[in-house]
């Protein structure tokens, strides 16, 4: 039981990171990036290959993986998402969703071409090792994953609250026109935001490659997880997606105890649908940014 809950939190930390990345683009730009899971998948592959080819520890290779995904994010914004920036409101969300669906096809099949359809796991030497605390196993890889997730969120929070760029992101999320009138270069803020979201997907992907496995087809599942969490947190909430991710991890763990392990996934989706229908502003819903 306790073991299950602890594992739920470990997994929830990854959900949280994946979801915060999606929430950034959604909350700030009104872009619903269905290809977020594919970005995560690429992050996972980067750390997998850096480990298998060069022997770089996945937690160290984050210093390559994060900028790499950041660059991919910049590129995607430039090439694709910038073109929906002119649209407003509903039309923008819907078109961004459609476009990202095209990206899903592209990225997924590029991954199959490059990496084959096989499942891969970053098998570090200390996999399986860990601490035993009051009979609860705490593997190093999972512990490290949670620590990295927490550090990432803290860093993002400080960035959004303290730095000028962070404040510009929050301001743009609230009212992009007022942001432009304050001299903020909104297209550039969008670019930065999307790239940050992609970088977060990269971190989440690294954690996934270490603690479970990556394959070209995992994208949709992770996008759905992130979507569930974003809806739980309320779509205006960015940092709030992290605790919501932990919550989803916990709920899944509990449901595999009380219902059945095979319905873990369903429970999350059902909650997602209920929240969507009954409380669209999310469980922790507030309309404020960050």
């Amino acid at each position: 039981m306790a073991q299950n809950i602890v594992y739920g939190l470990f997994v929830g930390g990854i959900y949280g990171i994946a979801a915060v990345g999606l929430a950034l683009a959604f909350g700030v730009m009104n872009v619903l990036n269905i290809a977020h899971g594919e970005l995560l998948m690429f992050g996972g592959y980067i750390s997998f290959w850096l480990f298998s080819l060069l022997g770089i520890d996945p937690f160290v290779s984050l210093i390559i993986c994060i900028p790499a995904l950041f660059l991919i994010g910049l590129l995607l914004d430039r090439l694709v998402y910038r073109h929906v920036a002119r649209l407003r409101g509903e039309a923008k969300i819907k078109n961004s969703l459609l476009i990202s669906f095209g990206l899903v096809l592209i990225l997924q099949n590029v991954a199959i071409r490059l990496f084959t359809a096989d499942e891969r796991t970053t098998q570090v030497s200390y996999i399986g090792q860990g601490i035993n605390l009051f009979g609860i196993a705490l593997p190093y890889t999972r512990l490290m994953g949670l620590v990295i997730a927490l550090v990432t969120i803290l860093a993002l929070h400080l960035f959004l609250q303290r730095t000028d760029s962070g404040k510009a992101i929050r301001a743009t999320a609230e009212d992009w026109e007022a942001a432009e009138l304050s001299g903020i270069n909104v297209p550039r803020v969008y670019m930065l935001t999307f790239a940050l979201g992609a970088a977060l997907a990269g971190i989440a992907g690294t954690l996934v490659s270490v603690t479970s496995s990556v394959a070209p087809s995992i994208g949709l599942d992770w996008t759905l997880k992130a979507l569930i969490v974003v809806v739980l947190a309320g779509t205006g909430s960015i940092i709030g997606a992290f605790p919501a991710g932990l919550l989803l991890g916990l709920v899944e763990a509990l449901s595999s105890i009380f219902i059945s392990a095979s319905y873990r996934e369903v429970v999350g989706l059902v909650i997602f649908l209920l929240v969507l229908l009954i409380r669209p502003q999310g469980l922790f819903g507030s309309r404020e940014a960050a």
Binding site: E174, E177, A179, L181, E288, A290
Partner: peptide, 12 residues
């Protein structure tokens, strides 16, 4: 421009 309706960043 000080826009119509003020358009402050209300959450900040």
């Amino acid at each position: 421009l000080v826009p119509e309706g003020r358009r402050l960043f209300e959450g900040m």
